[in-house]
Design a protein around this nucleic acid. Structure first.
Lengths: 134, 134
DNA sequence: TAAAAACCAAGTGTTTTACTAGGCTTTTTG
DNA sequence: CAAAAAGCCTAGTAAAACACTTGGTTTTTA
């Protein structure tokens, strides 16, 4: 019942990028600041790029930058890309006893709804809130 | 980011026991009803017993029963026994950059609080809500 | 043309999860 | 009083998930 490194590192990368304004930033420099592996962060960056949250520039002086305004980056969407669904329980394919249904309806469904609502009400700009982090 | 089988099976066991009233119920019969392994359920039962949620009777005609009223069984407490802490992120031991702190304060801390509040406001009696499940 | 960066696929070690196996102890009942 | 039925307990294990690492290729700039 934990968020994985992919989601956590992804958020840190987005916050980091937001601090560098409109200039491109190398993965290397992010990795150094965040004390993460460049190669691993690459995999996260790949997903963020494919989904249109960041843009990139190849070659020397290349790097990454945000493709959207922080206020338009919804954390729930980002985490669904990096973590898969945000459900605390797998969806029950097929048969379900009356008892299981009861637990799902009274525990898991409301919980999943609450968690989804939390993440979907939060944007990158809510996280940075105009802060200067360096 | 999923609840494990231990927590889920534990909840099902408690709901099942609540349906049998004050009579003792064998693990075998629960396992059959819930289609779970007796041996595995034993491990869950052991923890629930040690923490005082269920009582047991050895020997033939033995079995388990609830040790508390459903309204006094807080789901948050049960899941902390079976799953460990209910935090979506591990506690950060030691150093934390300003950026990490920012993410934690604006994402993880409020999220963990919301999840804890959800589970701690829910009792076994809320789940069964007077229902007859069989 | 060499270096710097993004891009990419596959492999790997570790940890966690979800069990299984098998024995011991207690209690009831024939 | 013996056998069976139940709970109790520990250790082992197979599989999946996780968190990377390795080792390249391609693009772009100086």
């Amino acid at each position: 019942m934990k968020l994985s490194t992919r989601g956590r590192y992804g958020l840190r990368m987005l916050v980091d990028l937001s601090q560098q304004g409109a200039q491109v930033v190398t993965l290397k420099s992010i990795a150094v600041r965040q004390e993460l592996s460049v190669n691993y962060l690459e995999q996260v960056a790949k997903d963020l790029k494919r989904s249109g949250y960041i843009r990139s520039q190849k070659g020397p002086q290349g790097g990454y930058l945000l493709a959207l305004e922080p206020k338009d980056i919804v954390i729930g969407d980002v985490l669904r890309i990096l973590e898969g669904d945000l459900l605390l329980t797998d969806k029950n394919h097929g048969k379900e006893t009356l008892l299981q249904q009861c637990v799902r309806e009274n525990v898991y469904d409301p919980l999943n709804t609450a968690v989804a609502h939390f993440f979907d009400s939060l944007t990158l700009s809510d996280i940075i809130a105009g802060k200067r982090l360096s």
